[in-house]
Design a protein around this nucleic acid. Sequence first.
DNA 1: AATGAATGAGTGTTCATTCAT
DNA 2: AATGAATGAACACTCATTCAT
Lengths: 205, 205, 205, 205
Amino acid sequence: MDIPTKRPLGRPIQQQDSISTSDLILHSASVLFMEKGFENVSMNQVADHSGVTKATVYYYFPTKTDLFVASIVGVLTRVNERIEHILQGPGSFQERLLKISVNYLKVPQIHMDDMFGKIKQHLSEEQQNQLIHQEDALYQTLCKGFEEAARQHEIVCSDPNLAAHIFVSMLRIGERQYTGRTKLFETTEEAAESIISFLWRGIHN
Amino acid sequence: MDIPTKRPLGRPIQQQDSISTSDLILHSASVLFMEKGFENVSMNQVADHSGVTKATVYYYFPTKTDLFVASIVGVLTRVNERIEHILQGPGSFQERLLKISVNYLKVPQIHMDDMFGKIKQHLSEEQQNQLIHQEDALYQTLCKGFEEAARQHEIVCSDPNLAAHIFVSMLRIGERQYTGRTKLFETTEEAAESIISFLWRGIHN
Amino acid sequence: MDIPTKRPLGRPIQQQDSISTSDLILHSASVLFMEKGFENVSMNQVADHSGVTKATVYYYFPTKTDLFVASIVGVLTRVNERIEHILQGPGSFQERLLKISVNYLKVPQIHMDDMFGKIKQHLSEEQQNQLIHQEDALYQTLCKGFEEAARQHEIVCSDPNLAAHIFVSMLRIGERQYTGRTKLFETTEEAAESIISFLWRGIHN
Amino acid sequence: MDIPTKRPLGRPIQQQDSISTSDLILHSASVLFMEKGFENVSMNQVADHSGVTKATVYYYFPTKTDLFVASIVGVLTRVNERIEHILQGPGSFQERLLKISVNYLKVPQIHMDDMFGKIKQHLSEEQQNQLIHQEDALYQTLCKGFEEAARQHEIVCSDPNLAAHIFVSMLRIGERQYTGRTKLFETTEEAAESIISFLWRGIHN
DNA sequence: AATGAATGAGTGTTCATTCAT
DNA sequence: AATGAATGAACACTCATTCAT
């Protein structure tokens, strides 16, 4: 019988340089939500994964959807920052896009739009807006990247916003693991390269 | 108070030329599953939507996942037939692809791959295979279309399989309704055209 | 896909020397009920085990309890006949009792009285009486055996009815398989002998 | 219409010196399980009988079988203590055995072995072991009683373990209420005396 | 004689949420 | 700040039974 390390009641002594309980929960939540999706994660699971009790989770996040929104917004924010950083870095546009692709593909199931369609029903308008806003920010970052690249004549692109969306959409196929017999790509890197290469050329003759 | 037309117990009087109960359920199920996703549809909802009792649903489909698989396989099969039919029809490849896009986009949330990632956990290996097989069939149909078009020199395409996947991936952005301020497209047709046009050219200079 | 050998509708051609459907069901039922107990056997299981449909089971037995009573009465009747036959056979009383014990112990879980306590709640008075009557018959058969043996001075026994009940009760310990570390008996025969021997020292003169 | 005193949501106001909810449930459960048997008691019934909701029952006992095991182990433990206490008390062995019998017979359907056969299928190995262990403890207590009595020359008994089992087995007939016309005993006390008397003639010297 | 289709009432279990401490 | 105890509503699934064929 292993005694579960029960926290004493009351406010715990704040450990120096230990992350706050709320961040702890947020982190657990985003991991779980991204892995399993909204409906397949229970507040109990979040609590267990965080090492706190369910009531504590509720202390910080009044509802499950609040927790969901907060955790996804957090992830999107970090991804956005990462993309921005890469875009402002060195290299040709194609090289930077490749870097983004690889990074993006390594975040499991970040493709929020998939979720949104089905999860919308659970969210308040306010909560939807929060998510949409954050997602938009991400697309705008990419959009600006395409715009700048067009201005520099690195690419030809009449609708950079569309390009941004199509780019993200295409990335998704890099995740396909379950494709029956013929695996599409061997590695994340290969996937990224193929996709970028396709994006560049299209199928015209 | 509206009295719900309750069926009596026991076997109902055989109605001539009315669709079978099992097809009725299957239809309700596919509508609901595609609209809300696996977890957000309860067997009770399917039953209500079909106008039968939950027990009747279970009479035909032993588990929820069985119902899910059966209904999705049905949808995929019909979509596949439709695509095949369009591909074998008249018009340039681009025109036919456009037709497919419009059709495809009108089926709400047919994008199974999104689901799979999260739903996998609920399915037996056998059930996963069924779904994968059906999805593969669809991609193969498209793949053949790209191959043939390449042979006819309508397009240039070194990897028709990849092209098929990318095509489907791109279609997905046609569904984006919730994109905050700037709606991407006004109509399904416009979406289809923009996407096809992008697919054709890519972003190269 | 194996096609289940579906019987055609309507009355089947009566096979010569094939047992009647009703007996078939009765047999399956008694096997299942004795193995798992009343509550753990569903009408569906009985139907499957019999190779007929549930509706057919209901055609012969209007309710589950009716089927239960009929099947148990059948078993008890056969056991009673068997005991009577042994008692009227050759050998000393002790030898015949031993034979009964071994036979009895090989019928799994014939100890109806255990069941009765819990199953009573499901049975109508009439059904309870049927079972009780059949059980009584069994005890009376044994009782007469003890009486006769006392008259023949093979045993000393002031209350043969009590002796009969105690005898059956004792037999029950022969079934104990799950007794933790120390198994009580190695074989059915050993169990029967030990029990009879114990019983004897209680009824000898 | 009697308004059922509904508890409000959330943690209830701490009542001083009132038994814990978990004990309350345990008590209800053991009463019900012993009266009706495992399968005929629903979690809803346990909840109603305890005056809590089903969810509360699940708060303390994760599954029905867990509740069952916990409640039976509790009963067996208490019975064991009671027997031990009587055996260590004053009086001849026969007198003490009589006391045990009367006590034992007043606990309805404590005869676990009956249950086990049928209930096994629902229990995990671990759970079965718990039950078996507790039952064994009880038989060992009795066994030691028989051993000690033999050492004191109060009885003659070559196999005290067998004697313990047979003793318990015999007690069972004291419960027979449903024996058709001829009731075996009028009172519990009479039953106990008859059984002990019968047992004695089997172990006297 | 035997069946296929349907049902109503339950079962065990989970979950998001609430509240006194 | 954090918790333990409790709830109401739902969920997937089962079962004995009914009835037109």
